[in-house]
C-alpha cells in the first residue's frame, strides 16, 4: 500500500505548507487538522496486510487460523484514540482563535504581534 502511504505524506506536506504560509488563523487550524488526517492514514496503512480481513473474529474468520487471516489491530487502536483527542485539541485551538479575535477584532495573525521580537 505504497500509494496510500504516499497520499498521507502529501496531505502532511499540504497541511504544513498551509500552516506556514496562510495568514488567517482559521486556515492555520485547518492545516493542522489536515496534518492530523495524513498521520492517521500513514499509521493505518502500516498495519494493513494485503489480502487479510478486519480483526473481528466472527463467522467469517476461522478462529484457529486467525493469525493468518486478520490485519494488525494495534494501529487501529492507536488511531481510534488519536482521532477523538484530535477533535478536542482542534476545538481548543479554535477557542483560542475566537478569544484572540475578540481582543483585536481581526482574524489575521499579523495583527496579534505583541510577542514579536
Amino acid at each position: 500500500m505504497q500509494l496510500i502511504t504516499g497520499l498521507g505524506f502529501v496531505l502532511i506536506i499540504i497541511g504544513i505548507w498551509g500552516m506556514l504560509t496562510r495568514k488567517n488563523m482559521v486556515k492555520i487550524v485547518l492545516g493542522f487538522s489536515l496534518v492530523d488526517t495524513g498521520i492517521h492514514i500513514i499509521m493505518v496503512s502500516i498495519g494493513y496486510i494485503k489480502g487479510k480481513t478486519a480483526p473481528i473474529l466472527n463467522e467469517a474468520v476461522n478462529k484457529a487460523k486467525a493469525l493468518q487471516e486478520v490485519v494488525d489491530p494495534v494501529p487501529s487502536v492507536l488511531v481510534l484514540t488519536a482521532i477523538v483527542i484530535g477533535l478536542a485539541v482542534t476545538a481548543l485551538m479554535l477557542v483560542y482563535v475566537v478569544r484572540l479575535h475578540k481582543e483585536k477584532n481581526s482574524m489575521q495573525i499579523d495583527d496579534h504581534g505583541e510577542l514579536e521580537w
Binding site: P55, I56, L57, P73, V74, T81
Partner: peptide, 8 residues
C-alpha cells in the same frame, strides 16, 4: 469478538 475493543 472485536479485537480492537479487547485491546482498547
Amino acid at each position: 469478538q472485536n479485537l480492537v475493543t479487547a485491546i482498547i
